[in-house]
Design a protein around this nucleic acid. Structure first.
Lengths: 171, 171
DNA sequence: GATTCGATCGGAGGGATAGTTA
DNA sequence: TCTAACTATCCCTCCGATCGAA
């Protein structure tokens, strides 16, 4: 990977051309420049291939994607970044995510495929669907807890402490 | 300046398109993407070349860009779309925009380079800066008036009724 | 009247902080 | 009782329809 510098305006222009959540700057530029996409892995990410294929994405690559995505997104709210990260985590390892998604608080449950379940365990949890995912999360939490939720989730998914810290740092 | 990551191959591709020694990545990308050279920053003493280059963009092209941009942007609020359109209108023809920007209401003035002026003519006008522009607009209006402001502005800039209708339709 | 314009105020979303429970 | 963990109330900001004024 190489790093290049672009002015603010151009940066925003590129970001505005995002077609799929999680697209990297390279993906976007290649499309804009009508260049061929870079073989295998890029495709696996874009077209929701089989669960298996998706499972095989390297955590390292996920990390990069996630951070890029959050970076590129103009979203300034913690909720928006939270959702983006969760979406990326699911995309990289759906099966693993599902196993990890049963983390809960004292009364609340944090994830569910059924929003009703979130509503029933706790008041005003403000469930929202994680984009491109069958999962819903609670949303009525402070930013610290959003980080804790990601931390616990990623731990259960088997990420290293460093990776977790880096991701949480972006919320 | 922002930093983006591109893969090796793409990096080499971009580098290979250098036309002038010392050209920045932004310059090259702008040329490859057929974007105008960098727009004038707020308040800056504008260099004539930039100004002239920007003025010469075809209205047709602007229209397409504008609509695309608004379309692609995930911005949900009328205000966000409003700002995007104004920004694009300025970018395409800064001088023309400046001449047209003196439209006003009964008490309020709609545009100014000085937010204070907007604050002073009217209560709670909620001025916001038009992105990449020395101009500020009032923001505390209903959506209908936002359309009217764009309509009047574009009329004063000399756009055809069809074009105006199409753009207003996107607000 | 009819129409245009202004800006108040209600509603929604976000999330810190006050409150509760273990 | 004291503290740490968790909850959810409630305040703040942003948006823009609605209603009042010209």
């Amino acid at each position: 990977m190489k790093t290049i510098e672009v002015d603010e305006q151009l940066y925003r222009y590129i970001a505005s051309r995002t077609l799929h959540i999680g697209e990297s700057a390279s993906d976007i530029l290649r499309r804009l420049l009508s260049l061929p996409t870079e073989a295998v892995q890029a495709n696996a990410v874009e077209d929701h291939l089989t669960q298996q294929a998706a499972e095989s994405i390297e955590p390292e690559q996920l990390l990069k994607m996630t951070l890029d995505e959050v970076q590129l997104s103009k979203e300034e709210s913690a909720i928006a970044r939270f959702m983006l990260i969760l979406s990326a985590l699911y995309r990289a390892q759906p099966g693993n995510f599902s196993q990890a998604a049963d983390i809960k608080g004292r009364k609340r449950i944090y994830f569910s495929q059924d929003p009703q379940a979130l509503l029933e365990n706790g008041n005003t949890t403000k469930p929202k669907q994680v984009p491109d995912t069958p999962y819903w999360v609670i949303t009525n939490t402070n930013t610290g807890r959003k980080r804790l939720i990601i931390e616990q989730l990623m731990q259960a998914m088997g990420y290293s402490a460093d990776t977790i810290a880096e991701v949480c740092n972006k919320v």
